[in-house]
Design a protein around this nucleic acid. Sequence first.
DNA 1: TCTTATCGGAGAATGATTCTCATAAAAGAA
DNA 2: TTCTTTTATGAGAATCATTCTCCGATAAGA
Lengths: 141, 141
Amino acid sequence: MKSSSKNIRQLFVEKGLKITPQRVAILEAIYKSDNHPCADNIIKLVHKDHPNIAKGTVYKVLDTLVESGLIQKVQADTEVMRYDGVTKKHHHLYCSECATIKDYYDEDLDKILENHFNNIKIDGFKIEDLVLQIKGRFDKC
Amino acid sequence: MKSSSKNIRQLFVEKGLKITPQRVAILEAIYKSDNHPCADNIIKLVHKDHPNIAKGTVYKVLDTLVESGLIQKVQADTEVMRYDGVTKKHHHLYCSECATIKDYYDEDLDKILENHFNNIKIDGFKIEDLVLQIKGRFDKC
DNA sequence: TCTTATCGGAGAATGATTCTCATAAAAGAA
DNA sequence: TTCTTTTATGAGAATCATTCTCCGATAAGA
């Protein structure tokens, strides 16, 4: 047993998750992968060593890993694209309880961000836009 | 003809887009809608007054409007969910040319944001997490 | 080893989005 | 206005990521 596998098993124990070969293989694949793989990437990676793991299983395991906090979803909480008629610069409040996405305007924030990235350049990357995802919940939810 | 419709027609002219009843109806629906409608919401809204507009048309018009800059997509540029094995706090660089999403760590930025939202409370909303979407392009792209 | 809750495999079902292609309509020219 | 050409639309099939169903398998504690 490789030590990385042992570490992964330990993570499952800490989270109270059953240790299964499928879960170990999937989390290993994510750790090995460096570019935010989508489910299909993960399925292909996992299939190199474990060709019998079903697609549905990978999706279920990914949900389990997200719920336990071992991995995160990138981008959106839903796969449905949403549209915004407001083209003025603004940010978004995402409620973890309801599906609301609310516009958030904050010119001070815009200035702070602009100032920050004037001082700190990101190597090899040219910034075109900055959008802050403010995640939380509305009091009413 | 309502003035809002007239304004919308003017917008199309400015962007060099053909004026069609479908496009007018769809952009009107987005302007009337306040909560970042998804395509299906828009289809339902549009169908109230224009029951014959096809779903496929709505999708095509939405793409056209996004390309022209009259509306924006919220959340992701793709509907495919991607996963991240890094649970340490970080932000993301999104390249508009390639599909890469790169992790970006910046503790100064985290402090600045934290400080900002300690001073400026958002009414009726409790912040749980702040993730900056840094959009732009890699030099190599 | 046994028991039981939970998990995984296989493939069908779902649902958002895209594609195809024939018809219709917009916009500029005459 | 009428014609011409380009582009848009409607209808519905196709695609593709994701979810669901259901039954057999397996992890983990007794």
